[in-house]
């Protein structure tokens, strides 16, 4: 039983959600990883040293540089014949390409798994995380996306995998599939802070923050804790922060060691994105806010008073 895991790279490093996907599949047997794009040598070296990786396949071509679903799904489909499982992290790229590859293989994708029960049996959340379904696949190739927050990432060192180029036929399939779509541009939001999905601590603000500039109040706290800054959908919809900050069913799903929710009421949609955090802290002036039902530590207070106080307390340490 060997799994093929599509992994994403950034500046020569392997993204953490991809390492979580490797860890999830390593429970079942050998893991081969697939790297796609251009200038893969640094990323291939990084991938080969990840613990649990037996082989690195590289697919080097400009059509694969932007993770467009059409060429990527064709590539995965062309390679799938040798594997029992085809998987990727449930990132924007994974969620875009894997269901397309699954349909090309006439398989039902199993999205966002949080548990591996066996080679064909997986656990996945449904209804915004309010229920967990255990499903058994009858398809010969199981196509999966993996919720990164549910699996500790595979260690970046300790492995010594061999690297080889993907077969030319697979690359040709990717090129042929690239005719109908093209990448036009990116608009990436720059951030010096840790990536939201991988941060050990997340500080999030909600509608209670009242204005965009008030999110600056969270920065000194985030700096002191080495935290990523997140937001509720209400804060995003109010235009306080860009949408890639959103934690929730429709945004990023996080499970940090510490999640601090500030001015967030705790709607079902938001809880779906953070309720697996190890410790949850809520600061809200409404003591009836549903967030207090999941918070390990709740403080009923005006955030504009409590946040500067929190910063001062953390500075003491």
């Amino acid at each position: 039983m060997t799994a093929l895991v599509f992994i994403e790279h950034e500046n020569g490093a392997i993204r953490q959600p991809s390492r979580s996907a490797i860890a999830a599949l390593a429970k079942l047997g050998d893991v081969h990883v697939l790297l796609a794009g251009t200038d893969l040598s640094a990323a291939a070296t990084a991938a080969a040293s990840i613990a649990g990786v037996a082989k690195v396949l590289t697919a080097e071509d400009a059509v694969l540089a932007d993770n467009l679903a059409e060429p990527l799904a064709a590539l995965l489909t062309a390679l799938a014949g040798d594997y029992s499982h085809v998987a990727a992290a449930a990132t924007a790229a994974g969620k875009n390409a894997l269901p397309r590859a699954a349909a090309l293989l006439d398989a039902q994708v199993i999205s966002d798994i949080v548990g591996v029960e066996g080679a064909d049996t997986f656990i996945r959340p449904i209804y915004a995380g309010n229920a967990l379904a255990t499903v058994k696949s009858k398809d010969p190739v199981r196509v999966l996306t993996v919720r990164a927050a549910a699996f500790p990432p595979a260690e970046p060192t300790g492995g010594s995998a061999s690297t080889e180029a993907a077969p030319a036929a697979a690359l040709d399939a990717a090129k042929a599939a690239a005719a109908k779509s093209r990448h036009v541009s990116y608009e990436i939001h720059k951030s010096e802070r840790p990536e939201l999905s991988a941060a050990r601590v997340v500080v999030s603000g909600g509608r209670g923050m009242a204005a965009s500039e008030n999110f600056k109040l969270l920065e000194p706290i985030a700096d002191k804790l080495g935290a990523a800054i997140g937001a509720s959908r209400a804060a995003v919809d109010s235009g306080f922060v860009p949408n890639d900050r959103q934690v929730g069913q429709t945004g990023t799903i996080v499970a940090p060691e510490l999640y601090i929710a500030i001015g967030i009421s705790g709607a079902i949609q938001h809880l779906a994105g953070m309720k697996d955090s190890k410790v949850i802290v809520a600061i809200n002036k409404d003591e009836e806010a549903p967030i207090f039902q999941v918070a390990d530590y709740g403080l009923v207070a005006d955030l504009f008073k409590a946040v500067p106080e929190l910063d001062a307390e953390l500075a003491k340490a």
Binding site: Q108, T121, A131, K136, K138, L258, V281, A295, Y297, E309
Partner: peptide, 30 residues
Amino acid sequence: PRLETLKVAEPAKRQGGKKVGSVAELVEKL
């Protein structure tokens, strides 16, 4: 269907609801 649902279960309940009185107490507990 290609997937057979073996079981649908409730996720583990969190033990939430503990309130603290001040920011100092919050930081101390954390």
